[in-house]
Design a protein around this nucleic acid. Sequence first.
DNA 1: TTTACTATTGACACCATTGTTAATAAGAGG
DNA 2: CCTCTTATTAACAATGGTGTCAATAGTAAA
Lengths: 195, 195
Amino acid sequence: MITKPRIRRNPEEARALILAAAGKRLEEHGLRGLNIKDVADDSGIKHGTLLHHFGSAEGMRRALLAKLSEELISDMSSILNSDAAPEIVFVELFRLMSQTGQTKLLAWRALEEDSDIVSKEEIASIDLIEHIVQRVAERIKGKDVDLARNLIFLALSSAVGWGICGPTLMSTLGMTASQQDQFPAWVGEQLPKLI
Amino acid sequence: MITKPRIRRNPEEARALILAAAGKRLEEHGLRGLNIKDVADDSGIKHGTLLHHFGSAEGMRRALLAKLSEELISDMSSILNSDAAPEIVFVELFRLMSQTGQTKLLAWRALEEDSDIVSKEEIASIDLIEHIVQRVAERIKGKDVDLARNLIFLALSSAVGWGICGPTLMSTLGMTASQQDQFPAWVGEQLPKLI
DNA sequence: TTTACTATTGACACCATTGTTAATAAGAGG
DNA sequence: CCTCTTATTAACAATGGTGTCAATAGTAAA
């Protein structure tokens, strides 16, 4: 009797493998793709092993949600915190949000009731964000911190909206493809005018 | 043998009953609440009857998606098309998008691959939107239609982003509750300055 | 080498959801 | 009153996703 060789991974490695496959499935197949059978198949392990590492299917989903949220906050922070000119910063922000993975992550979070799943990690990032707010405020006469916050949130919310339903809304508005492409740059030019 | 009396509805009435219950379930329980068993129970009919009217569970979901999308486009149009001052219009727009139903609708659409389910109805509303774009353009010197389009899209996308993850993003930015409430009004004041 | 720990696996059971079918009954039209 | 259509229902079957369990096999430590 020949038995198949087993690959024994350490727990972190196994979890990382599984979450990577889960993230890809979320992008390609939406929420319905996030079942333990398919995710396990994609990552080359058996579904029993997956349950061993995450406890339940819901546990796996929560772990993925937390991981992706952390990554998004991190990406946003590093873009906002860069020394690039505002025009570049805004374009980068829109480019980040137009990735399907980010869109589906935000949509998924909006559909979940208990959206405080990842609040701990995000609260940890407030300090960094606050630093960014201060830096933007310094460019404003009178160092208007509230104005800086509003401007940053306007850029962020618009980028999110762009990611969620940009193409649909824009074609509804009758915008051509090139007009759609130029919108991020336009925002980058216009928002500084409000200072 | 006593048989229960049967209520016989006409098809439109039955479909309306079912979709109303489905919409409420989407708001309260998310996508997982959109199964034929629960929806049928809530609307007081048997799940077999539901399948008779919509063909399949997916058919019911597509019908709900189409109905809600139509309603959203209609609400957006009537707000944009009102004669109210820009400040009021923006606040109304944000109020519309902050309703949980609209949030979940957009999130749902973003998660679905085939987002052209409702394209026909939306395309039919382009004429109305185009009329609104023209009206806004008339307030701009030189009747800059492209600028009008960009402004409207900035407002819309920001409102969508506000609906999808407004509270989360804003508390991450360190905004107080009152600052969060005032944001729509702030947008209403600022955007006209870009003209 | 021996032992202890645990990641891994296959097989199984369970449950929720979906879909099918034949029978029934309500209502419209003749 | 009779007939035809079809909305309605209960009961059943099928499927797929979830979770359990005992056995197995790497791996590190004693």
